[in-house]
Design a protein around this nucleic acid. Structure first.
Length: 298
DNA sequence: CGATTATCCTGTGCGC
DNA sequence: TGCGCACAGGATAATC
């Protein structure tokens, strides 16, 4: 559920509330939260200052003043929530980051698919300890802030962030592929950040059927796909992401997003297409549900 | 090699 | 009202 727009909204909340703060204590509960390496390694973060909050695709990159990077992925049901240290832990709280002067940032994840791991960018941190780097409020500067950090080696297999891809990259990445278009849109090695919900929305806006063989798109269709990818994700970020009926996604302050009210196809099986009125169909592509309008999308 | 399927989990909502 | 079960889908490993 958290896809690029939700992770970006969380990133902005973490940056706004914890950037420049010193980590007093980091607690991890349960064996699944840190599973790529010895969980004890996270102890090295105690006393460090958070000096950057980046994102690549659905990964959050918390950069510290010694060059370490705490990589976080929310997967299906993970939440990062602000809390006062005095508040009781919610059920399924797997990690607590306690900051000086900013309270807790808590990782809550019922399904335990989410994970943290410690990485090293190999490059110097982009701001020295403690000083809050100025960051603007406009979309462009926030996007730049998200991408400012070098990518850890563990994430080298990811494609470019979905906000950065254009027709040229899509054309090269999709050429010769027989798999359905939607299967490649959600493949993080092709582009990073798009998941099941936004892939359907992007295909609708691009007027492309999600089951089209990906390699068969014409140049004009690739341009529509690139434009739709950018516009759907940008609009979703502006709306604070999508909070579905399961309420699984919330931002750092616990607020719901509103982009679910702008969904054109996802979850709308049987309801009229907002463009032509024909009922939205539900199909299965790559073992996942897909929603589409068979008349508007070709 | 590329494409498909199973797996990890829990909460939810459905049918009976 | 309650029980069992299919389903949700992000990433990765295994398999076709």
């Amino acid at each position: 559920m958290p896809e690029l727009p939700e992770v970006e909204t969380v990133r902005r909340g973490v940056s706004r509330h914890y950037l420049g703060r010193k980590l007093l204590q980091l607690s991890v509960f349960g064996p699944r939260t840190v599973r790529r390496h010895d969980p004890g390694l996270l102890g090295a973060l105690r006393g460090r200052t958070l000096c950057s909050v980046g994102r690549h695709g659905k990964y959050l990159l918390l950069g510290w003043d010694d060059g370490q990077v705490l990589v976080a992925h929310l997967r299906m049901s993970g939440q990062l929530l602000a809390a006062k240290p005095s508040e009781p832990l919610l059920l399924h709280t797997h990690a607590v980051l306690r900051f000086s002067g900013a309270g807790d940032l808590r990782f809550v994840d019922p399904r335990t698919f989410g994970e943290f791991f410690l990485a090293w960018t190999g490059s110097a941190p982009n701001s020295a300890g403690g000083a809050r780097p100025p960051h603007g409020e406009d979309v462009a500067s926030m996007a730049a802030e998200a991408q400012a950090m070098a990518l850890p080696a563990e994430l080298a297999g990811l494609g470019p962030d979905a906000l950065d891809v254009g027709p040229a990259h899509l054309g090269a990445a999709l050429a010769g592929r027989r798999a359905p278009l939607k299967a490649l849109l959600v493949d993080q090695r092709v582009l990073a950040g798009v998941g099941n919900i936004y892939a359907d929305e992007i295909c609708f806006v691009a007027r492309l059927r999600p089951d089209r063989p990906a390699g068969g798109l014409r140049p004009a269709e690739l341009r529509r796909l690139a434009a739709a990818t950018h516009s759907v994700l940008t609009n979703a970020i502006a709306a604070g992401g999508s909070t579905l009926s399961d309420q699984r996604y919330r931002d750092v302050l616990g607020e719901a997003g509103s982009y679910q009210f702008e969904h054109k196809v996802y979850g709308r099986a049987g309801q009229p297409c907002l463009s032509c009125g024909r009922p939205i169909e539900r199909a299965t592509i790559g073992a996942k549900s897909a929603y589409l309008c068979r008349r508007c999308q070709r």
